[in-house]
Amino acid sequence: MSNLTNLQCPLPQLDFDVITLGHGGGGLLTNKLLDKAIFELFDNEKLKTRHDGAILSFGHKVAFSTDSFVISPVFFPGGNIGELAVNGTVNDVAMCGASPRYISLALIIEEGLPVTELWDILVHVKGAAEKAGVLIVTGDTKVVERGKGDKIFINTTGVGEMNPNAQIGTDYIKPGDKIIVSGNVATHGMAIMSVRKGLEFETSIESDTCNLNHTIGHLLNEFGSQIHLMRDPTRGGVASTLNEIARDTQLGIDIVQDDIPIDSRVDSACEMLGLDPLYVANEGVFISFVDASVADAYLKKLQSLEYGENAAIIGEVVADHHNKVVLTSKIGGKRVVNMQVGEQLPRIC
């Protein structure tokens, strides 16, 4: 997000420096916090009613998604939990083939969080929401005792109108479909790893968190039902997402290691820690399964769109080795890419 939003949104005058339990108590302190830090910042017609919920109307079918964000550290290279919480839900709604319109914002704040940090997070929420074109229309704020949270947890829920051209679902996937990844993999996970206590390493890797809804909207308008599935491979990475799809479709998936786009710094960092980039989390990347007849045109279009310049065809759906993802290694050998078990842990040597 640009620094412009930060400049336009200076920290409001508040008579407290840190969040205390009272700010979640529902009384005067809660209202002080909400008035200055929430209602003024996110001001819109629906929020103005200050009701417990928002009343929405839609002409089309609606997509609906929720996600909770507990990332540590809260501030990381390339972003913070605020924009991640907006982008994450915006992208989940977009993956359904919908155009996200409204989101909710629920904050669970750990007692003692400096107000400056809360403000920084909220300003990034605002910036990300504006960029994605969604309104924050309802929300909640709770405060938990020190030690019972990790600075701040955020839940967002989003709704969006389905694109009338969209026919998205694992049922539409068939052998021959091409698998296209929209950008470099493993960037977000390695940006977080680089600042994790005990594993810090110096790098210029930044998280790829971003809103993918505008890019997806353009693709749906042009390719409609030729797009059979879209997924964002967040936790568990590309490998876990492809395994879920292979399992759900009972089809096989072939991917080619050499075709998977990755930033060389990210590749080196994975190498150093002994991690497989296919299992590392992404935020600003989505995988499409498209009809083979449009794959080249789809790729070309995606490469011309926002956040799509590194897009690549990484493989295809096949009728053999059911339920399995098989990778052709850089040297031409083949191996199964399994679902990740637990968390990937850095190796001893």
């Binding site: 290694s329 040297i331 050998g333 083949k334 191996r335």
Partner: peptide
Amino acid sequence: GGQTHGLVKNGILEM
């Protein structure tokens, strides 16, 4: 073990 991993991960054993 790193060599075992390399042999299996790259599909070398089958080659």
